[in-house]
Design a protein around this nucleic acid. Sequence first.
RNA 1: GGCGACGUAGCCAAGUGGUAAGGCACGGCUCUGCAAAAGCUGCACCAGCGGUUCGAGUCCGCUCGUCGCCUCCA
Length: 394
Amino acid sequence: MKLFNTLTQSLQEFVPLDDTVKIYVCGVTPYDTTHLGHAFTYLTFDTLMRYLEYTGHKVKYVQNVTDIDDDVIRKARELGMQWDELGNREIERFLDDTDSLNIRRPDVYARATDEIERIIELAQALVERGYAYVNEGCVFYDVKHDTEFGALAQSIGLNDYQSMLAIANERGNFPEDKRKRDPLDFVLWQAQAPGEPAWESPWGAGRPGWHVECSSMSMHYLGQQIDIHGGGADLTFPHHTCEIAQSEHYSGKAPFVRTWMHVGMVYQDGEKMSKSLGNLTLVRNLLKEYSADAIRIVLQNHHYRYPWECFPEDLKIAADTAQLFKQVRELIGPRLDGENTMLHNRFIAAMENDLNTPEALQLLKQSAREALDTRDKNLGAEVLRLTGILGLTA
RNA sequence: GGCGACGUAGCCAAGUGGUAAGGCACGGCUCUGCAAAAGCUGCACCAGCGGUUCGAGUCCGCUCGUCGCCUCCA
């Protein structure tokens, strides 16, 4: 199978390190509802996992939830809730929403707050090795000390350390700057602010920074080098760039991740769907009108790497496609006895080409129509078997 | 500003050097008592200019336009 690696900006033959494929995907910060963009990201990895299993791989899939973070604390205050109360509620909602879309849960759903001890250990090790420093109860990653910092950022156009530094300096208006040696430095551990939740550490009470939890959890649950690390394209920089720096200088092993996969953003009203703009299509609202299959089809009709906008018409078309597969089911019945090698091979070829689900679905739609026209039960059975790999339930 | 991506019919979109898929919308036809549904059918100077080539939507350069990233973000 060929997958596009963001780091090298090229399609590469995917070969797992050992007999279990290790996948880590950055999850949500649980302070708001699940929208179509989240669904696109997590459906992509659901589909990948199903396909890898179909082709005979064992898969271990870890997804994190950053349940302690500035946004969670802020939103909880706005709502007059405890931060963990809000987090628990939103985690439940997120899992409900993705369950409703028939997105399989990861093997490990890991919380940042369960990771505190190991995060501290990681931060401490980076201090000892000179990649991080302590100031006023905070620990910062020392970007200047790390000559390799930014390779992933470079892949999306931030060409080198110097330019990142120059840009950051231009806008040096961050309150943290006084405690940091360099504006690009990022927090591994931050000292407790009044009224905020905190954990004990060698540097006093505090809580983890944003990027460090994923390094820690990925290495803890999957090992120091993994096959695939994924997430939304907006995480490429700084989040994943920082993860590489932390992880590789902690473990002394590179690459931390063999294939970086980034999912394109979903748009609404011509702009990126985002919580701050409020232009959201919520999964739970869509589910009132459309089936899980229809929503999966809308998403899988787009290749995971490219941004797209969802129009109401696309949902109707997807609903028709879902209906088409149901008609095939009526023709075939519950047992899938026949097969069609030609369709099977073309489907596999599409999926092997960087998980090209739009092409795969196109093949299935054409074949479904043909099977209904000619009452070809072998072809129909093959269609249903393959829609099953895509996680459809017709 | 730096860097990156993209620009194919009204809309979505395939296409990775060899006569431009498909879908939606729209028009015509068939079938219908009418309509719907269904079926058939029609519908593209590939943003512009230049270059490489026997041949370019596809490769190279420039121009124009749209968008993204640059410590909120799936």
